[in-house]
């Protein structure tokens, strides 16, 4: 069996740019999901009943529908239905964030629930208001406790961006497919890209572990 890594090496710039887009998309999606996920979790806990019902339905639906389906729907059906045409990158950003926000919301909710009620009582006894308690006591501790789960979501985000290849976002997966198709060297290309993804995701998994071990005491009451 002969390997020919020539095409992979020749197109390294093309692949490197794919890595850049993968990282950019991942970070954008992670930032959006974290922001909206926290808001959804807060609204689900403190919002009016009707809003809670809608949010629970949204969260459970996102747990039931594949990312691919959400992605494809946003890219192909959404523009026809609304007349709004988004470029692939933005479509992927919206669709992936829409999906991952639900996961983050669940994590934030569980994190907030895991903060001992005594902590809230201590805040109340100091005369703090509920928004003050949420902001200064519950959320900071919850975020520390949620770190492993949020780390998981971050790796999940990178993995999900690979699915955006399906709607032609020129990220790493898409570029690998393109090179493999043009040069007839799928073994070399996909093995290389496998290594690249591993090199992106593995450090996140490990890094979150290491950081969490050092700061977990901040969330332990």
């Amino acid at each position: 069996m002969d390997f020919n890594f020539g095409p992979v090496i020749e197109s390294w710039r093309f692949l490197a740019d794919g890595v850049r887009i993968t990282v950019l998309l991942s970070l954008s999606v992670a930032a959006c999901s974290l922001t909206f996920g926290t808001l959804v979790a807060l609204a689900r806990r403190y919002g009016p009943k009707w809003l809670q019902a809608i949010l629970i339905f949204y969260i459970d639906s996102m747990r039931a529908i594949p990312v691919l389906v959400v992605l494809v729907w946003f890219y192909f059906a959404f523009p026809i239905a609304t007349g709004i045409n988004l470029p692939p990158f933005l479509s992927a950003l919206v669709a992936l964030s829409f999906n991952l926000t639900a996961y983050v919301a669940e994590i934030v909710r569980a994190g907030m629930e895991s903060v001992r009620p005594g902590q809230v009582r201590a805040g109340l006894a100091l005369g703090m208001s509920t928004p003050q308690i949420v902001r200064k006591i519950v959320l900071p501790q919850a975020f520390v406790r949620m770190m492993p789960a949020l780390g998981n979501v971050l790796t999940l985000t990178v993995k999900d961006t690979a699915i955006a290849a399906v709607i032609a976002v020129p990220e790493l997966m898409r570029r690998a497919d393109a090179i493999a198709g043009q040069t007839y060297t799928p073994v070399e290309v996909f093995s290389t890209v496998m290594l690249l993804y591993f090199c992106i995701i593995f450090p996140i998994t490990r890094g979150v572990d290491i950081v969490y071990k050092r700061i977990s005491f901040l969330g332990r009451s």
């Binding site: 997966m173 690998a176 995701i201």
Partner: peptide, 13 residues
């Protein structure tokens, strides 16, 4: 630590 879609492609090609 790999995207499943990549594993699918890998298994295919």
């Amino acid at each position: 630590n790999l995207p499943i879609i990549l594993v699918v492609y890998w298994a295919f090609y």
